[in-house]
């Protein structure tokens, strides 16, 4: 598909003259979701879902989240140049979207990051039939067949009951993972107050203002040590092995991430209770989604693309690795986006 090009700034839709999740400031950026590697500051004009725009505004502050902004609801079609453009839910985090583009009878879908597992904090992924599907491949190896998140939450709650005098501190990314964990805990019947690291609270407040109830949240930073004993504390992954966590009463270090699926990764992070919960598609979901779109051409933006492209070949699909540098998995130790 020659009207979607790879430029140094990122993926460029030539007939619409816009970039998707560009890595550098551009005139017009269409943003799939609010994670800092996809939503970067200082674009002249930004098109994204209202939720993603709100998230960008919270993280970047006034002015940096696009000089002009165009909120686009899921399914709302607009013309940009010669291109028909709309957004479809990606199921990754609140507001996350696939970018759907139609030009001269061809349809391309850029998924951004996505997952297929139900998530109480965002709209479920929608399969959009297309000719070209651009996918991520964070968990692009057949060993990544991730367990049901409810099972992992059950593990955490069992541990909390077994060690009532200890404090479980769960590392989770500020945007998406944190709120999903809270919602999963609430769904599992845990209604005690949750203690949050200061870097996590503003995003939770935003989620609540956007209609995602999270129950009682309290700041762990100002809390008395004794109050948190036996409770669950959520903190950014960078804080759980840090001095910050050591001030908690008898902490049990947990980390919610798809990488926890592999023992060596969990061990290397010094995690005592690994929770395999990811906001990315696992191997089965990647293959299943690529197949379901009916696309004959699959581009892989980032991740472990070798195995995925090999598997595409076996399915008679044409796969291409874009190897976009700068897209990271948010569970890796990427510095936290400034939560403002």
């Amino acid at each position: 598909m020659d009207w979607l090009e790879l430029k140094p700034e990122g993926l460029f839709c030539a007939p619409g003259a816009f970039y998707i999740d560009p890595l550098q400031p551009v005139a017009h950026a269409v943003i799939t979701h609010g994670h800092s590697d996809h939503a970067r500051p200082n674009h002249a004009h930004v098109t994204a879902t209202p939720e993603t725009l709100a998230i960008m505004h919270l993280r970047m502050g006034e002015g940096r989240a696009g000089h002009t902004r165009r909120p686009l609801h899921y399914g709302q079609v607009i013309s940009v140049g010669d291109v028909q453009l709309w957004l479809a839910p990606a199921g990754h985090v609140l507001g996350s979207a696939q970018v759907v583009m139609e030009y001269r009878g061809q349809r391309a879908v850029v998924s951004g990051d996505y997952k297929r597992t139900p998530d109480p904090t965002c709209a479920p992924f929608e399969v959009v039939p297309c000719d070209l599907f651009v996918t991520e491949a964070t968990f692009g190896l057949p060993v990544f067949r991730l367990p049901n998140p409810a099972h992992e939450i059950g593990k955490l709650l069992h541990d909390v009951r077994l060690f009532p005098d200890r404090t479980h501190v769960v590392g989770c990314y500020a945007l998406g993972k944190c709120q999903r964990l809270i919602a999963l805990l609430r769904n599992a019947g845990y209604h005690d107050p949750l203690w949050l690291h200061g870097a996590l609270l503003p995003m939770c407040r935003l989620y609540e203002s956007l209609g995602i109830p999270l129950g009682e949240l309290r700041s762990a930073t100002v809390a008395q040590k004794a109050e948190m004993r036996g409770g669950i504390v959520l903190a950014p992954p960078s804080a759980i092995a840090d001095r910050w966590a050591r001030r908690l009463p008898d902490p049990v270090v947990c980390l919610a991430s798809g990488w926890m699926h592999v023992r060596q990764r969990a061990k290397a992070r010094g995690v005592e209770l690994p929770l395999v919960i990811s906001d990315h598609a696992d191997w089965d979901a990647l293959l299943g989604t690529c197949r379901a779109t009916g696309a004959q051409e699959i581009w892989v933006t980032h991740g472990r693309e070798d195995a995925l492209i090999y598997a595409m070949g076996k399915m008679q699909l044409h796969g291409r690795a874009l190897r976009l540098i700068g897209y990271e998995d948010e569970d890796e130790d990427v510095p936290e986006g400034d939560p403002a």
Partner: peptide, 19 residues
């Protein structure tokens, strides 16, 4: 696919268990 996975996981029993 097995070879790529084993390479990543580094332990045979774990690779087979996961795959």
């Amino acid at each position: 696919l097995f070879a790529l996975s084993y390479d990543y996981v580094g332990d045979l029993a774990e690779t087979v268990a996961l795959i």
